[in-house]
Amino acid sequence: MQDSESTRQWQVTCVCGWRTSGARGEVVSAVIAHGRDTHSQDLTEEQAMSQAVPMPADE
């Protein structure tokens, strides 16, 4: 049975307005790719999650 942490949904809004949401792994990957491709920044997982906001899972 999955625990709540692994199913928790997260959302990030970048300063440039770009948004992403999903499970932790998805958000981290998307934020790191966005930082690299759009802002030429190499972000760590910690940095990627520092702006993440927990959201309720879709019903």
Partner: peptide
């Protein structure tokens, strides 16, 4: 004032 990569600036609103 408009963000570059969105029509408007939208942030998450936790319950």
């Amino acid at each position: 004032l408009c963000p570059e990569h969105a029509d408007s600036f939208v942030v998450a609103w936790p319950v």
